[in-house]
Amino acid sequence: MAIQKHNTLGLRFLLVALLLNIANGNDLKLGFYKKTCPRAEAIVKRTTANFISRAPSLAAPLLRMHFHDCFVRGCDGSVLLNSTKNNQAEKAGIPNLSLRGFQVIDAAKTAVEAACPGVVSCADILALVARDSIQQIKGPYWPVPLGRRDGRVSIASESFTLPAPFANITTLKSQFKSRGLSVKDLVVLSGGHTVGVSHCSTIASRLYNFTGKGDTDPTLDPKYVPHLKSKCKPTDTTTLLEMDPGSVKTFDEDYYTIVSKRRGLFESDAALLNDKQTSAYVKLQAKSHGATFFKDFSDSMVKMGKIGVLTGKNGEIRKHCALIN
Rank of each mutant, 00 (worst) to 15 (best):
T216V: 08
T171I: 12
L28N: 05
G308C: 00
T110N: 14
F166Y: 13
G290A: 04
V259E: 04
L9C: 12
T170A: 15
K5H: 14
G264P: 08
K35L: 08
N274P: 01
K249P: 00
T48N: 01
K283E: 10
Q88Y: 08
G25D: 03
A280T: 10
K109Q: 14
P117Q: 04
P56K: 00
N86V: 06
M1G: 13
L20G: 14
N314G: 15
L207D: 08
C70N: 02
L99R: 07
I324C: 03
E90M: 11
G25S: 03
W142M: 04
T170D: 15
Y255R: 07
L207R: 06
C200A: 03
V188D: 10
H227Y: 13
I105C: 10
D269L: 07
F266R: 04
I203D: 07
P61M: 02
K295I: 09
Y281T: 09
A271R: 02
A130G: 02
N86W: 04
N314Y: 06
L80H: 00
N24T: 07
D106K: 11
T161Q: 02
K213H: 14
I43W: 03
E41T: 14
T48E: 01
A156M: 00
A107L: 03
T110Q: 13
G10V: 09
T219R: 13
E90T: 04
G246D: 11
G101Y: 03
S201E: 10
K177E: 15
Q175N: 12
S190T: 08
A59Q: 06
T219W: 05
L181D: 13
P117L: 01
I324H: 05
G212T: 00
W142I: 07
R100M: 13
T110C: 03
L19Y: 05
K35I: 09
M243V: 09
N96Y: 06
T161Y: 00
A17F: 09
E158W: 12
Q285H: 05
G290W: 03
P56G: 02
V195F: 08
N24S: 11
